[in-house]
């Protein structure tokens, strides 16, 4: 604050050796990095340019020879497509819901594992396991072993309470997918928050106890502010992964019934490989990329702010 005002002048960066040879020197240092840069451009930027090109074409694979330039028609169709809006909303619900619930459960489990009790190592391994299972296998497990209306475990367990043979996946398709995702992502959140809990200085917790805080007071006043940055990191990383969910939807619901449980990646896949409409799905892809960049910029700024904030005055 006041300190920054009186920074000595010599702290402004000096630029020595800015002679005639330095430009060549710079390239000598940079040249070995060029192949990697070129490769990155080829595999990420060229496909994107192609996608933009396709998005300006009317091109349906089932009608060969129909391909023609249509300008922004595909984009207009995307924004007037009510299914697209429905699916975009699904994506937001699925991502936000999965992140939120796995975060809350992860916090609870992390608090449990932060205490010493008999068999803690074993319980910790069990709690981490869902994260280690292949997403496709996990989705299949939920679909057949747990949610199945005739032989699913959930109906079996709930049958004494008068819950009949509910077909969970077709009755609550989005929620079912979300449950499977939460199950898989809770361990991730738990590990992040556990790392945060264990990095808490003991003496601060002790000081709070001596200062008269109850357990809840210590948690609210000391632990939660300390965990804030870990929770933010969990939200951002979780959202980045979960917004791209495809496997769980593909395995459990195929986006159905209708598009009730489809998210944007799945819907684009449907348009491209089931509807064969390359032009329109390319336009959707471009829209999603732009939207993701905007969201990610804010999200990443949040991460960097909270993690560099610890050191600045």
């Amino acid at each position: 604050m006041t300190v920054t005002a009186e920074r000595p002048a010599e702290l402004t960066p000096r630029r020595p050796d800015r002679g005639p040879g330095s430009r060549a020197d710079g390239w000598v240092r940079r040249a070995p990095l060029l192949p990697a840069l070129v490769f990155t451009i080829i595999v990420t930027q060229l496909p994107f340019l192609f996608t933009i090109y396709y998005s300006l074409q009317s091109w349906n694979l089932v009608r060969p020879g129909s391909r023609q330039f249509v300008g922004i028609d595909n984009y207009i169709l995307v924004f007037t497509d009510s299914q697209f809006r429905q699916v975009a909303l699904n994506t937001v619900l699925l991502t936000a819901g999965s992140v939120l619930f796995s975060l809350i459960l992860g916090l609870l489990f992390a608090l449990l594992l932060d205490r010493a009790f008999l068999g803690r190592g074993f319980i910790r391994t069990l709690l981490i396991t869902p994260f280690l299972i292949t997403p496709v296998a996990a989705a299949l497990l939920w679909k057949t072993v747990l949610f199945d209306p005739t032989y699913g475990l959930i109906n079996f367990v709930l049958s004494p309470f008068g819950v009949g043979a509910t077909d969970w996946i077709s009755t609550f398709p989005l929620t079912s997918v979300m449950v499977a995702l939460v199950w898989q992502w809770t361990p991730f959140m738990m590990l992040l928050i556990l790392a945060g809990l264990q990095s808490q200085p003991h003496d601060v917790l002790e000081a709070a106890r001596v200062d008269g805080a109850t357990s809840w007071g210590v948690f609210r006043e000391v632990t939660i502010p300390h965990l804030r940055r870990f929770i933010e990191l969990g939200i951002v990383l979780g959202a980045i992964y979960l917004i791209n969910t495809f496997d769980a939807i593909y395995m459990m619901t195929q986006g159905g019934p209708g598009t009730a449980s489809a998210n944007l990646p799945f819907y684009i896949y449907q348009r491209a490989f089931l509807g064969f409409d390359i032009g329109q799905s390319a336009a959707m892809g471009v829209v999603v990329v732009v939207a993701t960049i905007i969201v990610a910029t804010f999200a990443l700024r949040l991460i960097f702010r909270s993690f560099s904030g610890g050191e600045e005055t």
Partner: peptide
């Protein structure tokens, strides 16, 4: 008797200040 009910105040070696406050 828990710490909070002992009516004591403690100064720690590393001060143990609350970093977010």
């Amino acid at each position: 008797v828990p710490s909070r009910d002992r009516d004591i105040a403690m100064v720690f070696q590393n001060y143990a200040l609350y970093p977010n406050k």
